[in-house]
Design a binder for these strands. Structure first.
Length: 857
RNA sequence: GCCCCUGUGGCGGAACUGGUAGACGCGACAGACUCAAAAUCUGUUGUUCGCAAGGACGUGCUGGUUCGAUUCCGGCCAGGGGCACCA
């Protein structure tokens, strides 16, 4: 006799979960090796910064990855699913300063805490491959990579104006400046000149752009963002000689408007401007003012157009007239050539500038509509343009470039928005740049690799602790033996994260070569990469660059690192605020009436805000540890992939989590009930004879094959929300036939067995326990994934909708193979149909086999 | 300003190549069990008219294609994201 299902004790997740976690860990259950007999599958979630504790966003990211890893493993792939730590970086130094500790201790301590959290979530990692970027072995090898890139000419040094963060006291990459402020500190960025190391990312600009078209497994959104970031512009450069013998080259994407050019504008940073400033007080004052103002505010876009006439002129290349040169604040030195020819009639900025300084405008493009408004930037026909008159913009562009080339002044060319990547950081907690400054030999590679970070540093003095260290930087020059000084800058941590996925490919702890070519070519590319869309540009572009650069250097042989990319959405939660704007924790708030909330302690009115990304400052975070303690890891895992598609933002709700916990229990009760009804591994030995089954059991069995298909397909397309829904569907169907279980042991044994397998990627602990309880051998994940029979999916009878004039009017039960006449005859018997057709002539009848009947009257 | 994406019940969201819109879950309501409650199991739940049978409306708005449109095409509106003096 089976037990009473409502009497079954709740699932004891805390015991079961820790028990299986220990088992997996002890037995190294998810260890992987190169295995040529199986197809490989590399799943990777973006590794995390060890900030202290994981948050729900991490849980969602890593759960998606773990579900895929477990699913692929069950489907017979040799799965690489590693984990590591992006462990260098500023916060460690800030924390050390605050707590009077050491960045290294702080970092490794956090890693310990967070590792425990990951284990408590049941993620199926190959822990043997775990490492942190601050491990000596990792950054030591990274120095070799740096030197190889240097040798290849992909690393170079140049003096450049850098973004200086006055709060964090460090240099920022352009990409780390957001609206003129530091990406971490939020402080307005200042400009300074400094010698910096650069990675020549622009060397691969064509490939970085072009290969995007072949990345079919990447979201279109991310590819668009990268294209915009690279920012290719095609056009033509034009060379000018000034009346003072100087030279200016301009770049334009609109060379066909050259007849409308009325002046030239150069950047205040342009060499000619610098030269003029040396002898001209007014120009010097203008440039000085420009540097102060624009940099400090960092708000260039809304800035008023300003400029100064240099009194220098050039010849128009195609007309017999002179064009004055202006120094103008809207021309950027780091784009194009730092100089433009201005056509005020057809460019908004030029127009604004020309209007202010009363410069002439010459209309050269006309269109039928909108004929008098300037500036005109639309399509049209060329006028006032000599040999271009009457041509379309596209034709004129082609011909004018040809002409400019012929007379030797123009050149077809393209420019990119993408700039080389500045990688020097004046910080301690990073990978030391292995270079040595020698007075005699210059700047040369260090030979005493690895150059290790000294532990005994002080953070009390301002500036870089490596710079301040008593002995560390003093070395002998490896070339001449004289006293020399180490480079004290460290590498941008984006450098660390640009190749970590390659390092996971080797598993041999003795191997000094972290990029063992055979292992890398076995595992790469990453088949599924998962992370937040906030890395759409920087990290993902740098990683692509590294794959190309390391291939050029001969380390590896993969030019694109990530075959499929999945960007998951953020986890959001409601926010509560007092009327004065102070944020409140949910537990400080209570519901007063239907739509009013108040502060429990004071009774003040509470404003319920929109869903916002969980953040500590908004007091709307939930702690994964608390959830796991109260509901278990499986419930949390299920919840973060339920309901909402994983690429969309996820709205947190306590009720939703509760519902997942209820479902875990519902399923657990089903398994216990099944066991008590005699469902077990042994019962599965025979194959199900479908025709011998009672109709309802037969339907259940067939429908379950549909469930298997739906779950499998949804997993393949990464629609985890549908996976959860279809599994619930299957479970609901079984529940409705509970009392028939004992008398249909074979069918139910097979169904229950496959249910355990299907749900195991999402809720591995409970399913492992059920698998074991029902007497199945080994780990559930090692058993093969359930398969479905196609013939069970084909439906022989169907509920066919019947329409009159395209409107649904009833349903008939027919066999799929019934002839058209038979079906139509039956459809005409529906009373409503008869009523609607009475007295009308049938104009047309539509019959789509197995789909629809439609009478048009 | 430019580029991209998204609009479906009270809510999160399903819907195969155009073919019964609303799967599954949350919430709500009801029944069973219980002395009672919780838990559990079973139902109902787009709006609206109707006692009912049944009807009307309904996938942001608005046109179009079609026997038939959440799905395809045009125009608009709203929300979100990216870039932004890029020549």
């Amino acid at each position: 006799m089976p037990v009473d299902i409502s009497e079954i004790a709740p699932y004891n997740f805390s015991i079961v979960e820790s028990q299986w976690q220990n088992f997996w860990l002890k037995n190294n259950s998810f260890h992987t090796d190169v295995n040529s007999s199986r197809k490989k599958y590399y799943v990777l979630e973006m590794f995390m910064y060890p900030s202290g504790k994981i948050h729900i966003g991490h849980v969602r990211n890593y759960t998606i990855g773990d579900i895929i890893a477990r699913f692929k493993r069950a489907r017979g792939f040799s799965v690489l699913h590693p984990v590591g730590w992006d462990a260098f970086g500023l916060p460690a130094e800030n924390a050390a300063l605050k707590q009077n500790g050491h960045p290294k201790d702080w970092t490794y301590q956090n890693i310990g805490i967070m590792k425990k959290q990951l284990i408590s979530l049941g993620f199926s990692y190959d822990w043997e491959r775990e490492f942190a970027t601050c491990d000596e072995k990792y950054y030591g090898f990274q120095q070799k990579i740096f030197l190889a890139l240097h040798k290849k000419g992909l690393v170079y040094r140049k003096k450049s104006e850098i973004n200086w963060d006055p709060v964090d006291n460090c240099v920022l990459a352009n990409e780390q400046v957001i609206n003129g402020c530091g990406w971490r500190s939020g402080a307005p960025v200042e400009k300074r000149m400094l010698s910096q190391w650069f990675l020549k990312i622009t060397y691969f600009v064509d490939e970085l752009l072009g290969e995007l078209d072949n990345l079919n497994g990447w979201p279109e959104k991310v590819k668009t963002m990268q294209r915009n970031w690279i920012g290719k512009s095609e056009g033509c450069s034009i060379h000018f000689k000034t009346n003072t013998g100087d030279e200016v080259t301009v770049f334009s994407t609109r060379p066909e408007t050259i007849f409308g050019a009325t002046f030239l504008a150069i950047s205040p940073d342009h060499p000619l401007a610098t030269k003029l400033a040396a002898t001209n007080e007014k120009i010097k004052a203008f440039i000085d003012d420009f540097k102060k103002g624009s940099v400090a505010q960092g708000v260039l876009d809304k800035q008023e157009k300003r400029g100064i006439n240099t009194e220098i002129v050039v010849d128009h290349p195609l007309l017999n007239k002179k064009l004055p040169i202006y120094i103008a604040n809207f021309v950027l030195m780091n784009y194009g050539t730092g100089a433009v020819f201005a056509t005020p009639a057809h460019d908004e900025r030029d127009y604004e500038f020309a209007k202010k300084y009363e410069l002439p405008m010459e209309r050269v493009i006309t269109s039928s509509e909108n004929n008098d408004k300037l500036p005109y930037v639309g399509d049209g026909i060329l006028i006032n343009s000599g040999f271009l008159n009457g041509l379309s913009i596209a034709e004129a562009k082609k011909i004018v470039i040809q002409k400019l080339c012929e007379i030797g002044l123009g050149k077809r060319c393209e420019f990119f928005r993408l700039l080389d990547w500045g990688i020097s950081r004046q910080r301690y907690w990073g990978c030391p740049i292995p270079m040595i400054h020698c007075d005699k030999c210059g700047i040369i590679p260090a030979e005493d690799l690895p150059v290790l970070l000294p532990y005994d540093v002080t953070f009390s003095k301002a500036g870089n602790p490596l710079e301040n260290h008593g002995t560390w930087k003093y070395v002998k020059c490896p070339r001449c033996g004289n006293d020399a000084i180490r480079e004290t800058d460290t590498l941008d941590t984006f450098f660390d994260s640009s190749w970590y996925f390659l390092r996971f490919c080797i598993n041999d702890s003795d191997n000094e070569n972290l990029l063992e070519k055979e292992d890398v070519s076995y595992w790469m590319q990453v088949d599924q990469y998962i992370g937040g869309v906030e890395h759409a540009i920087l990290h993902l572009l740098y990683a692509r660059f590294f794959a190309k650069a390391l291939t050029e250097c001969g380390f590896i042989n993969v030019r694109e690192p990530f075959d499929n990319l999945f960007t998951q959405g953020m986890v959001c939660n409601v926010t509560y605020q007092k009327e004065n704007g102070d944020w409140l924790f949910p537990e400080e708030v209570r519901k007063k009436s239907h739509d009013e909330y108040e502060v429990i302690a004071t009774g003040e009115k509470v404003i319920v805000g929109h869903l916002e990304k969980m953040s500590k400052s908004k007091k709307n975070v939930v702690d994964p540890d608390e959830i796991i303690k109260n509901y278990g890891a499986d419930a949390l895992r299920l919840f973060v992939v339920s309901d909402t598609p994983p690429d969309k933002d996820f709205p947190w709700s306590d009720e939703g989590l509760e519902g997942c916990w209820r479902f875990i229990n519902r399923l657990w009760r089903l398994f216990v009930y099944a066991k008590s009804s005699g469902i077990c591994a042994e019962e599965c030995s025979e194959s199900v004879q479908i025709n011998a089954l009672a109709p309802d059991i037969q339907k259940l069995y067939k429908d379950f094959h549909r469930t298997i298909k739906n779950v499998t397909d949804s997993l393949e397309e990464r629609s985890m929300n549908k996976v959860a829904a279809y599994i619930r569907d299957g479970v609901n169907a079984v529940y409705l036939l509970l009392e028939k279980m004992e008398s249909n042991k074979l069918v139910f044994s097979v169904v229950i067995r496959d249910l355990v397998k299907l749900f195991a990627p999402i809720a591995p602990h409970m399913c492992e326990e059920a698998w074991n309880m029902l007497g199945f051998k080994g780990l559930v994940g090692d058993s093969c994934w359930p398969s479905y029979k196609k013939e069970y999916l084909e439906i022989s009878t169907v509920e066919l909708p019947v329409q009159v004039n395209g409107k649904f009017r009833g349903i008939i039960n027919v066999s799929v193979d019934d002839a058209e006449e038979v079906v139509l005859e039956q459809a005409l018997h529906i009373p409503t149909v008869q009523k609607l057709m009475a007295g009308k002539s049938l104009k047309k009848k539509i019959f789509v086999k197995g789909k629809i009947v439609n009478f048009v009257v």
